[in-house]
Simulated assay, not measured.
Amino acid sequence: MNASTSSQPTSTAVLIVNGRGEYLLHLRDAHKPICDPGTWSLVGGGPEPGETLDEAIAREILEETGLVLSGITPCTTVQTHGPNVTEGKIQVYAARWDGTAHDLPVTEGIMFAWFDIATMEQLSMCRWAHEVIKAHHTEHPAPPLPGPRDDTGQGGAGAVKNVIGAHLFLERDGRTLLGLRHPDVEFAGGEWHALAGHVERESVRACLVREAYEEAGIVIEPADLTLVHTVHLLDDHENAEPRIQLFFRAIQWSGEPEVREPDKCTAWQWWPLDGLPDPMVGYTRAAIEGILTGTAYTELGWAPPVRATGGR
């Protein structure tokens, strides 16, 4: 691919690549007066007044995907032409991300997906984007894999990241504390759920101490938290990330629960352990039932294991 040197770039695009050498593509609207409608292309766009190209691509990535990526580096330029083309010469960048395309917010266009080079030959792709990707792949070929890919996470040798969730099990007078999720939240709207949060760059106990105070005004010491149940969960939607849900019992705490994040939780209530509410998050119910029976571990959403049949 020959890059034009007759003018400065007037727009940006980014090659977002994961550890398998797949590229993140964005399906463009098919029925709008835009360049390359209905094709798979790259995230990007033109700079706003006073904005550098480096600033523009960081903003476009955030606006279109919700991601804040580090290590965004220029890699090539390309000249575009055709109906409704306003970009002209595009500065193309490269960046690394290993997340799940399914989970990205779609603020414009139709959807995001990961594709390898071979699959792209079967797609309706923006021509310049396809050429840029092929040139990049030639210089940065995908790493060899030890075994076949398994996107479901139900086997195969490829490593799959598991999201870790921290959950608080409080018990008082035969009752446990649950929160009613706001009906507009993305996960489990209108359902009862344990106080919980995703573990960030912190220990699980530190996460729970933070979440308990932020969500309900409850103060807990890390040493007072004991792991009482683990749920290994695979949601039923395609390309879902496996999740390890850890439930900790607090042997003591201070403060009475109060609604401190009303956009996420509308009420806290103590429910009898033998009379849990409905609707309720399924894996939370399963975890509480496991705690009451002394079971340490539950699997949900995974295919049943294949048993060996014996013989030679």
Rank of each mutant, 00 (worst) to 15 (best):
T230H: 02
L225P: 01
L225R: 00
V231Y: 02
P262E: 15
E238A: 15
A206Y: 06
H229I: 04
C207N: 14
A250I: 11
G255E: 13
D224K: 03
F187K: 07
R260A: 08
E215Q: 08
G179K: 03
R210C: 15
E191H: 10
R260L: 14
Y213H: 08
F247C: 15
S203E: 11
I218K: 00
E238V: 12
A216L: 02
L180T: 00
A250G: 15
V219A: 14
V199H: 13
P222M: 04
H232F: 12
D224Q: 07
C207S: 06
P183E: 06
H232W: 03
L195M: 12
L177S: 00
E221T: 03
T266P: 00
E241L: 04
R210M: 09
R181Y: 01
L208K: 00
A188S: 15
D235A: 13
E191G: 03
L246N: 03
I244R: 02
E200L: 07
A267C: 09
L195I: 02
E215N: 01
W253K: 01
D224M: 13
A250D: 14
D263H: 04
D184T: 14
E214M: 05
V259T: 03
L178F: 04
P222F: 13
W268K: 05
R210A: 13
A188I: 06
A212D: 12
E186R: 10
W270D: 14
E211Y: 02
D263E: 14
G197L: 00
L195D: 11
E256M: 12
T176H: 04
P222N: 12
G189L: 02
L246W: 00
H193D: 08
G190H: 05
Q269A: 05
W268F: 14
L246P: 02
W268P: 15
I251V: 13
W268S: 10
N239W: 03
P272T: 07
H237E: 10
E186T: 09
S203Y: 08
Q269Y: 02
F187T: 05
V259S: 07
